[in-house]
Simulated assay, not measured.
Amino acid sequence: MSDRSYPPRPILAVSTAVLRSGRVLLARRANAPGAGLYSLPGGLVEIGETLAEAAARELMEEVGVTAQPIGLCGARDVIHRDDEGQVARHFVVVTYAALWTSGEPATSLEADDVRWVAPHEIAGLPTTEGLAEAVAAAFARAGR
């Protein structure tokens, strides 16, 4: 059993809504949970890392992109329960809005597809819950 399964407390994670030319960078998750769903690039915060450091590291590791954070644009709980109602997973995901600075997105072991998407195109994709709202908040934070 993974240390992410049946945790004694919520697990802290970050994601980044990278904006470029009116589009946002999405990554399709290659692994569970959420395999096959488009989401914002991100992952777990490591001990001793700030949220911003974790966001930058995860962005580079997952899709090979760097971006300039412009501020927080949301947080959400991701809670999965098992058949008996026990909390099997609980992540708290803090999301940054950021402006692309360099790197062309590439797939990885964590992301089997990456693409720049206009906000109106999100509705046509299989996505993680709350993705459209997170993207809208990022564009609002960026004043766009």
Rank of each mutant, 00 (worst) to 15 (best):
M1D: 06
M1V: 11
S5I: 06
S5L: 15
S5K: 14
Y6T: 03
Y6G: 02
P7L: 02
P7M: 03
P7H: 02
P8H: 05
L12S: 12
V14P: 02
V14S: 04
V14M: 07
S15H: 06
S15Q: 14
T16G: 07
A17G: 12
V18W: 09
V18M: 10
L19R: 05
L19P: 01
S21N: 15
G22C: 11
G22H: 04
G22F: 03
G22N: 07
V24L: 05
L25N: 03
L25Y: 06
R28A: 02
R28E: 04
A32N: 10
A32Y: 06
P33M: 10
G36C: 04
G36S: 05
L37P: 00
S39I: 07
S39P: 02
S39H: 14
L40V: 05
G42M: 06
G43L: 15
L44T: 11
L44N: 05
L44S: 08
V45K: 02
V45M: 03
E46I: 07
E49M: 13
E49D: 15
T50A: 09
L51R: 12
L51E: 14
A55Q: 11
A56G: 01
A56P: 00
R57A: 10
R57P: 01
R57H: 06
L59H: 06
E61L: 13
E61W: 03
E61I: 04
E61M: 04
V63L: 03
G64S: 14
G64T: 07
T66Y: 03
P69L: 13
P69T: 07
I70G: 02
I70L: 06
G71D: 13
L72Y: 13
C73K: 08
G74W: 13
R76H: 12
R76C: 04
R76K: 09
R76Y: 11
V78W: 02
H80F: 13
R81G: 06
D82F: 04
D82R: 05
D83T: 10
D83V: 10
Q86H: 08
Q86F: 04
V87A: 02
V87Y: 00
A88E: 14
R89V: 07
H90M: 06
V92A: 03
V93Y: 00
T95W: 07
T95G: 00
Y96T: 00
A97W: 10
A97T: 08
A98P: 08
T101I: 14
T101Q: 15
S102I: 04
S102F: 02
E110V: 05
A111W: 00
D112P: 09
D112L: 08
V114D: 09
V114S: 11
V114R: 01
R115S: 13
V117S: 13
A118S: 14
A118H: 15
P119D: 11
A123M: 04
A123D: 14
G124M: 10
L125R: 12
T128I: 15
E129A: 15
E133D: 15
A134Q: 15
V135M: 12
V135N: 13
V135C: 11
A136I: 00
A136W: 01
A136D: 14
A138G: 15
A138I: 11
A140M: 06
G143H: 08
G143S: 08
R144I: 12
R144C: 07
